[in-house]
Deep mutational scan, measured.
Amino acid sequence: MIINNLKLIREKKKISQSELAALLEVSRQTINGIEKNKYNPSLQLALKIAYYLNTPLEDIFQWQ
């Protein structure tokens, strides 16, 4: 199972779901689904999230 800290990191950086979704060219619902662990992002999307949040990938997504 993958645990993610996306919501915590996104809120710490004061970025809304809508703003992050626009940067990543995905829907706000996609961001919401990832934050709620409804599904895991593709590797490409995970890397883009880490890039736009300027945060190491392993700080956002962790195996458990």
Rank of each mutant, 00 (worst) to 15 (best):
N4Q: 04
I3R: 11
I34G: 00
S27N: 09
I60L: 12
Q29Y: 12
S27K: 08
N4C: 05
Q64F: 09
L24T: 14
S27G: 08
D59T: 08
Q29K: 13
K48Q: 11
N4W: 02
Y39P: 03
L43A: 08
P56Q: 07
K38T: 14
A22L: 13
F61N: 01
S42C: 06
I2L: 12
P56M: 05
Q44Y: 09
E11G: 06
K36W: 08
L43S: 06
Q44S: 11
K48N: 07
L24G: 03
S16L: 07
I15S: 03
S27Y: 03
K36I: 13
P56L: 04
E19D: 13
E19C: 07
I60K: 00
K7H: 06
G33D: 15
K13I: 08
I9G: 02
D59H: 12
Y52C: 07
E11T: 13
K38I: 14
M1S: 06
I15L: 11
A46Y: 03
A22C: 08
I15Q: 05
S27W: 03
N32E: 15
I34A: 02
L53H: 01
N4Y: 01
S18F: 13
T30P: 01
I15M: 14
L57M: 10
N54E: 13
A21F: 01
R10T: 02
A22I: 11
I60T: 02
Q17G: 05
A21Y: 02
P41D: 01
Q62E: 10
I49Q: 00
E35Y: 02
N4F: 02
L45N: 03
N32A: 13
G33M: 15
K48V: 05
L43K: 11
T55L: 06
L23A: 15
T55F: 05
A50H: 03
I31F: 03
N5Q: 06
N40D: 10
N37Y: 07
S18L: 12
R28F: 10
N40E: 15
I60R: 00
S42Y: 05
I34C: 01
Q44G: 13
S16W: 04
Q17W: 03
S42K: 06
K48F: 04
E35H: 02
N54L: 06
Y51L: 11
T55A: 08
N32S: 13
E19Y: 11
S42E: 06
N54R: 11
K48D: 06
M1L: 15
Q44H: 14
Y51V: 08
P41T: 04
G33R: 15
D59G: 07
W63K: 05
E25T: 09
K12W: 11
Q29M: 11
V26N: 02
S16K: 10
I31W: 02
R10Q: 01
I34M: 05
A50C: 06
K36S: 15
L57Y: 05
P56W: 03
L24D: 00
Q44I: 12
I9C: 06
I34T: 02
Q64K: 11
I9F: 10
L23E: 09
M1I: 14
K12G: 12
L6D: 00
M1H: 07
N40T: 14
Y39N: 08
R28A: 14
Y51E: 09
L45D: 03
K38F: 13
I2Q: 08
E58K: 11
A22E: 14
L47A: 11
I31D: 00
L53K: 00
N5H: 08
L23F: 13
A46V: 05
R10S: 02
E19N: 10
K36A: 15
I34S: 00
L24C: 09
L24E: 00
L8Y: 11
S18E: 15
N4P: 02
L24F: 03
L57N: 02
N32H: 12
K48I: 05
N5Y: 06
R10L: 05
K7C: 06
K38W: 15
L47M: 14
T30S: 06
K36Q: 15
A50L: 02
I3V: 14
L45Y: 03
S27F: 03
P41S: 03
E25P: 06
N5A: 05
K14R: 14
L57H: 04
N4T: 03
A46D: 00
L47D: 06
F61K: 00
M1P: 12
L45R: 02
I3F: 11
K12L: 13
Y51G: 08
D59N: 10
R10H: 01
M1Q: 05
L43T: 08
V26Q: 04
K12P: 02
P56H: 07
P56S: 08
M1A: 06
K7L: 08
I3D: 05
R28I: 15
L23V: 12
